[in-house]
Design a protein around this nucleic acid. Structure first.
Length: 642
DNA sequence: TCCGCTCAATCG
DNA sequence: CCGATTGAG
C-alpha cells in the first residue's frame, strides 16, 4: 500500500526518465539492421513463438502488444522481427539489458540525486542544479536553447503545431514567471541536455517528465513518447488530473484502483477530490487514505532516493503446464542453474561495487498433483548467504527441502513445482580500508597441498613469530608469505575456507592446534571475554557455523527464525538449522573479532574478502559497544577520528 | 496450471 | 523479523 509523505515546502525539480522500448533499442544497437523496422523482443520461442516483453514503436503501429505471443504478433505484423532474449543455463538472461541500463544510469547520475527505479527508468532530483542555473545562467540570458529543450512539451502551452515551439521558447525564457515555473524551465533544459548526452554516448533514446514531484514527473514522461519530454507546471496539474484515469496512476493499476472504481465510483483522479480525507481513510486505511487524498491534488512528497544499484538480485524460472517439475532431481538441476547465475551476479556486484549480500531466499510455487483443491502456498525460506556457487546450490537445496516438507505437511502425494527462484538480498557496502598489512592470507589456493603449506606457515611462522599480540604481520613476514602464495587470484570461488589457515595473535588456540588446521575463521575467533578485557574493537559476526560445544549456550543471530536466540528455540519454532550448520566441519566458526585491525580485510584475496566480509554485518545500533558493534561502525569512527 | 522475470515496498 | 502480498515494468 502506498503511504503519504509530507511534501517539502520548497519547490523541487524532479525528472522521470524512461527509456523507449528499452530491450528493443538494446537489440537494435547490437544489430543495426533492425533499426527502423518493426521489432520486438521475445523470451523463448518454442511455445507459440515465445512471449513478447518489449515492442518497438514501428511494430506498435500494427497493433503488436507486449505480452502477445510471438505467433500472435506475426499475424498482425508479418514483417515483425523477433529477437530472442539471450539464454544461459536454460533460462532467460537479462544481463545484456541490465548492463545497458547501467550505461544510461552512469550518465544520468552525473547531475543531481539519481534513483534507479527499474532496469530502464530513473528519477532525478534536479532541484540544486536548477536553482544554480537560475542564479548563474538563467534561460532568458542564454544565447540559444538546445533543440532538444525547444522540443519540450509544456502542459498548458497551447499549440497550433507551428507556433508551439515559439510558445515553448517563450515559456522557457519568460522572465516574469513564477519562481517555480522558472525552476521547471531550468530542469527541462538540463534534462534535454542529459537526454542528448545519453543518445550521444549510448545511442539510446529516452523520454522524460519534469515536474515538482515524482508522481507528476512519472505521469509526464509517458505522455509524449518516444524521444520527447514533457513539463508539468503547477498551473496545469488540476486539469491534467481531472480526467486522468485512476487505473493508470502508479500504485492504482491493481486491486486498489479497482476498489476505488467499484466502491466509490472513482474513475478519474479528479473524482477523488469529492471525498474527504477521513472517508478515504475509512475505506483504505490511514496511510493509503491520506496518500489518495494527496494524489488527487497533485501532492506527492516521495523523495528521490540516491540509489543506483539494486537492493537485491533474483533469478527465477517458471515451469508452466506440462513442464512442471515433479522429481527432486529436476528441481535440483534447476536450483543449480539458478544458483549458478545468482552466484555469478553477486560476484560481479562485489567486483564492481564492493558490495556483499547477506541473505539467500528461495521461493517456489507448487501444487498437489492429485488434490483438486491444492491452493496451498509453497513457503519462502531464507538463510544467511554464503559465497561460492557450490554453497549457494547446497543451501538452496536445503531451503527447498525445508519448504517442501512444510508444503506437503503430513501427507505425501505427487507434487508439482511450477516456479523456482533464488534471491540474494540484504546487500551492504563494504567500507574501503586504508591500512595495508596482511598480504598474509594470500597463502591460498585450493589445490590439495595448499592447506599444508598454509598450516605450516601459520604454526611455524606466525604463531612463533615475535609479533606478540599484534594481529597483523610485518613486511618480512609478508614477503615470506608471498613466496608461499600460489600466484593468480583464484577463479575458484568455492575455495574452501578450511584451507586458509592462520593463528591469531600468537596465542595458542587449542582447538586449532589439536586439529592441526586453524581456519581463517579461527584466526578471527578470539573468545569474547578476551576481547572484552582488552577493550579493543569487538565485532559481531553473524554467519559462521555454530560449534557443537556452544549449542545451547550462545545466541545464534544467523538463524532466521524470528526471535530465536538459541538453536533449541529456533528449532522449536519450526525453524530449520542453517544449512551451514550441517554442512560445515567444526573447524570453522567465529563469534567475535578481537583486537584485529579490520583494514586487514582489504589485503585479503578477493575470494576470501568476500567470504569474510560476508560474515560481518553493520549493527543497527552502533552504540551497543559490546556486542553489536560492527566493523562498519568501526570504520566510520576510525575515519572520523583521523 | 502459458505473461516471464525481476525488482521494491508494505504489513502482519 | 521473516514471509506474504501487492504492484510495476
Amino acid at each position: 500500500m502506498p503511504v503519504a509523505r509530507p511534501e517539502p515546502q520548497d519547490a523541487r525539480v524532479i525528472a522521470h526518465v524512461d527509456m523507449d522500448c528499452f530491450y528493443v533499442q538494446v537489440e537494435q544497437r547490437k544489430q543495426p539492421n533492425l533499426r527502423g523496422v518493426p521489432t520486438a523482443v521475445v523470451q523463448y520461442n518454442s511455445w507459440k513463438g515465445g512471449g513478447l516483453i518489449a515492442v518497438g514503436y514501428e511494430a506498435r503501429k500494427f497493433g503488436v502488444k507486449r505480452s502477445m505471443r510471438g505467433d500472435e504478433a506475426k499475424k498482425v505484423c508479418p514483417d515483425l522481427q523477433l529477437v530472442q532474449v539471450p539464454v544461459a543455463r536454460g533460462k532467460a538472461d537479462l544481463n545484456l539489458y541490465r548492463n545497458a541500463g547501467s550505461e544510461v544510469v552512469s550518465i544520468l547520475a552525473t547531475e543531481g540525486r539519481c534513483e534507479r527505479a527499474s532496469i530502464d527508468e530513473v528519477y532525478l532530483d534536479l532541484t540544486d542544479a536548477a536553482e544554480s542555473m537560475l542564479l548563474e545562467t538563467p534561460p532568458e540570458l542564454l544565447d540559444e536553447l538546445s533543440d532538444e529543450a525547444l522540443r519540450s512539451h509544456v502542459l498548458g502551452i497551447t499549440g497550433g503545431e507551428d507556433d508551439r515551439r515559439k510558445n515553448v521558447k517563450q515559456w522557457l525564457c519568460q522572465t516574469d514567471a513564477d519562481h517555480r515555473d522558472k525552476l521547471l524551465a531550468c530542469g527541462a533544459i538540463i534534462v534535454a541536455q542529459l537526454r542528448s548526452k545519453v543518445l550521444e554516448e549510448t545511442e539510446f533514446t529516452c523520454s522524460a517528465g519534469i515536474a515538482h514531484n515524482k508522481m507528476l514527473a512519472k505521469l509526464a514522461s509517458a505522455m509524449h513518447k518516444p524521444a520527447q519530454q514533457t513539463v508539468v507546471p503547477s498551473s496545469s496539474v488540476k486539469d491534467l488530473l481531472a480526467t486522468f484515469p485512476v487505473k493508470k496512476m502508479k500504485q492504482l493499476g491493481g486491486k486498489l484502483g479497482s476498489a476505488l472504481q467499484s466502491e466509490l465510483g472513482v474513475n478519474t483522479v479528479g473524482d477523488l477530490l469529492h471525498f474527504p480525507e477521513e472517508k478515504l481513510q475509512e475505506h483504505y486505511g490511514i496511510n493509503t487514505g491520506s496518500w489518495l487524498w494527496n494524489i488527487a491534488r497533485g501532492i506527492n512528497g516521495e523523495e528521490v532516493e540516491g540509489r543506483i544499484l539494486p537492493k537485491s538480485h533474483g533469478c527465477g524460472k517458471t515451469f508452466p503446464g506440462p513442464q512442471a517439475l515433479k522429481t527432486i532431481a529436476s528441481v535440483e538441476h534447476w536450483l543449480n542453474q539458478l544458483s549458478e547465475e545468482l552466484s555469478e551476479r553477486i560476484q560481479t556486484d562485489f567486483d564492481r561495487n564492493k558490495r556483499v549480500a547477506h541473505s539467500l531466499t528461495l521461493h517456489a510455487r507448487a501444487y498437489n498433483a492429485n488434490e483438486l483443491d491444492s491452493q496451498r502456498k509453497f513457503p519462502s525460506k531464507s538463510c544467511t548467504l554464503r559465497y561460492g556457487t557450490a554453497k549457494i546450490q547446497e543451501d538452496a537445496k536445503k531451503l527447498f527441502d525445508s519448504g517442501l516438507r512444510d508444503f506437503l505437511g503430513s501427507q505425501n502425494s505427487g507434487w508439482r513445482v511450477t516456479s523456482l527462484s533464488v534471491a540474494a538480498s540484504k546487500i551492504f557496502d563494504t567500507p574501503p580500508g586504508t591500512c595495508s598489512i596482511l598480504k598474509f592470507f594470500q597463502a591460498k589456493n585450493p589445490s590439495s597441498s595448499l592447506s599444508n603449506v598454509s598450516n605450516e606457515f601459520v604454526e611455524d611462522d606466525v604463531a612463533a613469530s615475535p609479533s606478540g599480540s599484534r594481529s597483523y604481520i610485518t613486511a618480512k613476514e609478508d614477503e615470506h608469505l608471498r613466496e608461499l602464495n600460489c600466484g593468480e587470484t583464484s577463479d575458484n570461488n568455492a575455495t574452501p575456507h578450511q584451507n586458509i589457515t592462520v593463528q591469531r595473535n600468537g596465542k595458542s588456540n587449542k582447538k586449532a592446534k589439536d586439529k592441526g588446521t586453524a581456519s581463517i575463521l579461527q584466526f578471527f575467533s578470539g573468545s569474547n571475554s578476551a576481547s572484552a578485557e582488552q577493550g579493543c574493537n569487538e565485532f559481531s559476526v553473524d554467519r559462521a557455523p555454530v560449534p557443537p560445544d556452544r549449542i545451547g549456550s550462545e545466541s545464534y543471530p544467523e538463524l532466521t527464525q524470528q526471535g530465536s536466540h538459541t538453536l533449541e528455540e529456533h528449532n522449536s519454532k519450526g525453524g530449520i538449522p542453517h544449512p551451514a550448520h550441517t554442512a560445515q566441519r567444526s573447524d570453522s566458526w567465529v563469534l567475535d573479532i578481537g583486537d584485529i585491525d579490520p583494514s586487514v580485510l582489504d589485503e585479503l584475496p578477493l575470494e576470501i574478502q568476500k567470504e569474510v566480509r560476508g560474515w560481518i554485518r553493520p549493527s543497527k545500533r552502533p552504540n551497543t559497544a559490546k556486542r553489536g558493534s560492527s566493523i562498519v561502525h568501526y570504520f566510520s569512527s576510525a575515519r572520523s577520528s583521523q
